[in-house]
Every structure is written in C-alpha cells, then in structure tokens.
Write a protein that binds this DNA or RNA. Sequence first.
DNA 1: TTGTAGGCGTTATCAA
DNA 2: TTGATAACGCCTACAA
Lengths: 341, 341
Amino acid sequence: MQEDRLPPRVTIRQVAENAGVSVSAVSKVLRDAYGVSASLRARVEASIRELNYRPLAAARGMRGRTYTLGLVLPDIRNPFFAEILDGVASALAETQYQVMIGITEPAASEDAVIEAMIDRQVEGIILVGTVNVEAVVDALASRLPLVALGFHAPTMRTFDTVNTDDQLGARLAVRHLVANGFLATTMFSLDRPESTIIAQRELGYRREMIRCGLSEHINIVRVGSAKAQIVAGAKRVLDEPVRPRALFCWSDLVAVEVLSVASDMGLTSPNDVAIVGYDNSPVCALAQNGLTSVNQPGAVLGQSAARLLLERVGGRVSAQHIILQPKLIMRASSAAVSTCG
Amino acid sequence: MQEDRLPPRVTIRQVAENAGVSVSAVSKVLRDAYGVSASLRARVEASIRELNYRPLAAARGMRGRTYTLGLVLPDIRNPFFAEILDGVASALAETQYQVMIGITEPAASEDAVIEAMIDRQVEGIILVGTVNVEAVVDALASRLPLVALGFHAPTMRTFDTVNTDDQLGARLAVRHLVANGFLATTMFSLDRPESTIIAQRELGYRREMIRCGLSEHINIVRVGSAKAQIVAGAKRVLDEPVRPRALFCWSDLVAVEVLSVASDMGLTSPNDVAIVGYDNSPVCALAQNGLTSVNQPGAVLGQSAARLLLERVGGRVSAQHIILQPKLIMRASSAAVSTCG
DNA sequence: TTGTAGGCGTTATCAA
DNA sequence: TTGATAACGCCTACAA
C-alpha cells in the first residue's frame, strides 16, 4: 500500500466547513433530502465544486447505500451482450447509479462473481443468461433485488424477467426456411440443458416443423460452446449421408463458423445448405456472411432490465415478466434457390 | 430500499464470538497477519466456514483496503479486449483481488468511469487503450497505482506500460505484402491523433514503405471508428481512380468491413485488392474472411499488466515498460497472386 | 431550517 | 500470542 503518499480525500466535513454549514446540511444536499433552503443548497453546491468533493462509496456503503447495480454477463465475446450493456448503461445514465460489470467466462464462476458483487453491496443485480436453475435464482432474489435477462421463469414472483419470445423466434426461422423451399431443416443447438432460452428455441423449432408437416425431418444437434466443438459439430452435420437442406443455428457465432466449415467443404450457402442464425449481430450484415438471422432488440432488453431493477430497488415487490418480439432479418444465406427441394 | 427485509450480514464480531476469540484475532487470520497460533487460526477458520462469513468490502474500504483493481476497457465489441480480460482474470485468480470492469464506450466517458472507480477505492487501475494524453495519465498515476496497456510512453516514471511493438507489427505487414508482390499499399488508419498505438503503426508503415523504395505509394487514410464511417471510407478508397493494390488496416474489425465493401463492389481479395488486418481476432480464421493479420498476444498482455499492477500496489515505484513481439499470421487475403503488379 | 452525536464493520495500534 | 479500542466518512434520529 502506498495510500499515505496520496493526497487525502476531501470529506463531507471539509465541504461543510468550507461552506460554513453543518455536515448534515451537506449530506442532505447530496441526497436531495427535504428541508434544505435554496440559499443553503447553493452555498453547499459551490463548496462541493470548489473542493471537487466526491462522496466515498465505502462510507456510503456502511450506511446501506452504494448507488451501484451489478450486471453479470456470461461472455464478453458475443457482441449481443454489448448491446445489452449499452441498454443498461443508457437507462442508468440519468440516475445516480453506476453499473458494476462482472464477466463469468472463462476465469470466474457465476456464483463467485455474484458473491463478490454482494460483498460490494450492489443494491440489485441483473443476471444475463444465468446458468443457474430457478430455485437458485429464487434464493438469490430473496437476498437482493434481481432481474434475470435471458431466462424464462414466468411463474416466479421473487424476481423479474426480460426475454424475447424465443419460441416464436425459432418458429419464424423455420417458417421462413419452409417458405423458401428448404424443408429438411436441422437445428444446431447448444449443449446446455439448463438453459430455458435454448429449451424454448428447440420447442419452437419442433412445433413449427410439426405444424408444417415436417416431423420426419426434425433433428436437433446439441454442441458445446467452444470453437473446436462447434467446428467438429458442423463438420459432422454437413458430412451426414443425407445432408440437411438447411441449418437453424442457436447463435450467430455458431452460424458464421458453420458458414466457414461449409466453405471449407466446398459448399455454398444457400445453394448447398441454407443457414439462419440468431441475434442478428453485426457480422450478419457483412457481405461475406450475408446471414439471415433472428433479431433480438438487445438494447431494449438491457434498458428494460435496468428499469425493472430500479423499480425493485425502489420498493416494488410484485413480479414483472417482459417478453419482447423477435423479428426475422432475411439475407442471402437463406434466399430461395431455383433448384431447391 | 428494502435492506431491512434482508437477513443481516454476518459480521466479524459474530465470527469472533462463535469461535470464542477476540475480533482482532479474526481480523488477523483474515489478513494473514503475524502472531497467530495454529490452533487459534484453526478455530477461527472453522467459525468462518460455519457461519459462511464474508468480509464486507465497504468496511474494509473504510480502512483503506478493498482488494479490488479496476480494468478500464474502451470497447466491449472488439474481441481482442476479451483476451486481455482473460489474461487479467487469470493473473488475479490466485490472489485475493477482484477485478472491477468499466466500459467507456459508448455510454460513459473514460474519465467518468475512472472517477467512479476511484470513488469505490480500487487499489490500482489498468487503462486499456486510453484516449488520454501522457500528462493526464501521469496525473492520474500520482493518485493511484496505474498500468497503461496499449499506450506507448516509454519515458514515464510514474506508471508502467504494456504494449506490443506496434511499429514492428506494421513493418511486418508491409514487408509481407511487398514480398508477395503487392507494392501499392494504402494504410487504413484510425482518426484518433492522440493514440500512440496508431502513431506507431503509421510510423512503421511509412518507414517500411520507404525502406522498400515505395515512398511514392505511401498513403494513409484516417477514418473514425463508427461503422458508417468505415464503410464510407472503404468505398472511397476502393473507388479511387488508381485503386491501391493492397490495404493494411489498423484493426480486424475494419478489415472485415473492407472485405464486405469490396465484395459488394465485385472485387475479390487478394486478386483485386490484398488485405491485412490487425489483432488476429477469431474472425480472421473464418474461411469467408481468410484474413491475414498481425497477431498480438492479448492474454499475455493482460497477464503482464495485472502482474505489474500487483507489484505497484505492493509498493514498487520504479517504472517498467514491457514490449511484446507481434507476429504475422498469413491467410488467403494476402496470398501471392500470379498476375499481380 | 440547521446542528449534534452515535454507529455502521473492519483494521491496526497498543497494552496485557 | 492475544485482546481492547480508536479511528475511517457518511447518514440519520433527534435536538435546538
């Protein structure tokens, strides 16, 4: 530690002395509390500016407030999460709240990140794509205000959820592929049984395939999220004796890998295999990908989650479960082909 | 606030009572301080486990220690920063330290993020790709231990730096292009004059072009980091009366956009225009990109920065400036073409 | 409307 | 080797 060599921090006491008022007066101004005259407020604010005073978070924490909210993200590499972060940050911009970001992959476990945040007294927490089950999230929600984003739990009362309609997203993808003549669609899914998101997308895929009279073509391939697994899985699927006519991928990151593997195998999209991704991330629009994808309004999701969390921190105890609508964005990778079947 | 409905936190006092020892004894065990007998330590540790005690960060902060380090990242969308984060996290995994992540784009200014971290008493800070100038970083470093990653300041004594040799990286790119017969290389650079990284890359580009006797082909196009600007810039460059034979892009994110624009214009790489990126991010390896790129060891950079910061927090005051070597990873986008000139 | 005083949980000094 | 206790900066009853 070399704290002693640093300029000591300006305290509320010095602000008060400098302004010729009491400490509590300054505190009230800081917290917008009742019973402060305009002239006193002006004097205090001038003093704060003059001394460049900033409240110490730890001292506030000792009294219960930290003005900090936690945002737990699973994977910094997926640009979809960047949009969520943007949404959260924009919703908090007008408030006194700061967001504390925690990334769970690959160095830290989600639980460790959450506990570290609780140690730092975040006043509430947004869990994005949690790997925990309902009961665990429920227990956590009893400890502090909580919003789960990307986690379907419509019956839970202890926390709020924000999602897109993942079942519908999958249905849109299948419907689109069928409309363009691609009947034998395989779903390239994620090997994480506890994900309610994935479960909903798989359900939507199955249901829409059945609705279209394509039950005999239903085929779900579940693969882990590591790059090597994705590549191996893609090779396997594209090498099958009867190659699927289309692939519906649970994420754009998977879809672009599939495009790459297909290209390496001398296959082109959509001529040899049509491809649809999920998230509509920036890579989809690149000409070399031209990837049809299910769009999720990431920024709106993040904004909504932050708004709900602020409400909960403010005292709301009833649950809210928001479901936004996904939208299919069509591009070349699934365009109708004249000679398809 | 609904704190009052929550189970009150286990304090060090309860741990002490439960173990039948004094508060200071527990504190000493927690901090690995001198003068603790093995038996006392054992009793305390058992009590801690039994009550599931965790120290409150705010209370520690009141006494000066927070065991928290700040990591300021400019842009969550660039996967290169994810590698840095991995490196930092892995270097801190063995320690008591937690990393507090702050993202500056687009919602918050870098200064605001830094101040928020100081309010929370981070014991040190890693600045990645700061937009501040030397004097500002210097002033900040006088307030707390600081390591700048992606910022060339070899003469500064108040903080450490960790970089790759960006001048060399650019030279490698040019040398490779020239060796493969691409002589008229334009550099697609970033419109941010204060970036020492960019300055070094531009310098390397210039010097190597001169060394190869290609001074008359030197051409640097500077474009902002927004997608629209990149696309417009790429169109402009590729539409020039005499199109450059190759493009050296300051970042992979720019390079893949350039590939996209080229494709839209009916140009292919490397036949019509060779392309080299920077960072060797995961997108480079995709077959549809096949992007030659300058590799930076992101995880090692992050690890080194974290190690240096821990040393500074531990009391080191002399400066260290680490420079790692970049490496060119060759792929299709700059492969030699028989009919080139 | 303004001021006083006590306490939040931890660390570190000093005494036993 | 252990334990008692005074801070740290802020918030908030309560008093004036």
